[in-house]
Every structure is written in structure tokens, then in C-alpha cells.
Computed example of a mutant assay.
Amino acid sequence: MESGRILGIAYNVIPVKDVEKSAEWFVKHFGFNIRNKRDGYLSLFRENRPILDLIQSEHDSRAVFEVNGRKRWVITFFSDDIVSLHSRLQAGDVKVGNLSDEGKYGKFFVLEDLDGNLFDVWEHRDCELVY
């Protein structure tokens, strides 16, 4: 096997207004743990795996873009039980979209964090993701 290859995505950076408040929200709803805390910046991990870095930004830009007037996400989370996760987030007053089952493409829903960053959540039984 050749060395010097890209093995995957280590983490994604998203802008937030208040790093502490946003981190608490992600810890509460997703069970992430906080690491590498610096001034205006911190990392969120799932156990020993990096997931997101939050960076404090006064600018209105967010992790979202538009296609044909419809907001789209830039990050997709993977779930092993999307129905339970969707129900738990709804009960926790998280802004979530409808759960959709797209057959061979899997199940999906979209959620929004405190700052308006959009995320897609996906469950697919035929895709191998190594953690």
C-alpha cells in the first residue's frame, strides 16, 4: 500500500457566535466531549475521534449554502439509529427536519444548531465507515 495518501476527513471547522454556549449544545445533544480548548476555539470529539472544531466568529457566515433558493448543509453526520436520534432531538427542542427514507440511499434528516449551521444526518446499512 502506498504511503502519503489522504485517509479521510479528520474534522470540520464551523463558525459560531459563542464557543462555550455552542459546545454545551453539542455535548448535550450528541454526547461529544470537549478538547483542545483555546481562546475562541475548541474541538469536539466522539470518544477519541475528532468531529468538529468550533471557532468564534462575529461574521454572519455559517456552514450553509444555497442551491436554487434552498439551504444546504456542508457536513453530514452518520447515525446507527437515525429514528431514535431524530425522536430524541425533537424532544430536546432541536430544529430538525422530517425524517426521510430514500430506499437504497438510506435515511436522512436535516438539523440546525444554535447558530444556523445546517447538518445532514444519515443512516445507511450498506456503507462501511470505520471509526
Rank of each mutant, 00 (worst) to 15 (best):
G40C: 15
A23C: 15
M1G: 05
Y131C: 05
P50M: 15
H86K: 02
G116Q: 05
P15S: 07
R88Y: 02
V16D: 02
D113I: 01
W122L: 13
E66I: 03
I6K: 04
H124K: 13
F77D: 00
L42G: 00
E20Y: 01
H86T: 06
K28H: 06
L7Q: 09
G97Q: 03
E123I: 06
K107H: 04
K28D: 05
L52P: 01
N117F: 02
G97W: 05
R38Y: 09
I75L: 04
A63T: 04
R38L: 12
D81A: 11
K17T: 15
K71E: 04
F119V: 06
W122R: 12
R49P: 01
L52F: 04
R5M: 11
P15L: 00
A63C: 12
R35L: 11
G106A: 09
G8I: 07
V110L: 07
K17H: 11
E102H: 12
N36A: 14
S87L: 09
V13C: 07
K104M: 07
V16H: 00
K37Y: 07
E128N: 10
L54S: 00
Q90G: 10
K37C: 11
E128L: 15
E58K: 11
V16T: 04
S100Y: 13
N36M: 10
A10V: 09
E102S: 05
F78D: 02
S3Y: 03
L7E: 10
L7V: 13
A10Q: 14
L89N: 12
D80G: 06
L42A: 03
N33S: 08
N117E: 02
N33T: 12
S61R: 11
F30N: 07
K21I: 06
Y131N: 07
F65R: 08
S3G: 05
E128G: 02
V94D: 00
Y105H: 14
Q90S: 14
D81C: 09
L111Y: 01
E24H: 08
S3I: 07
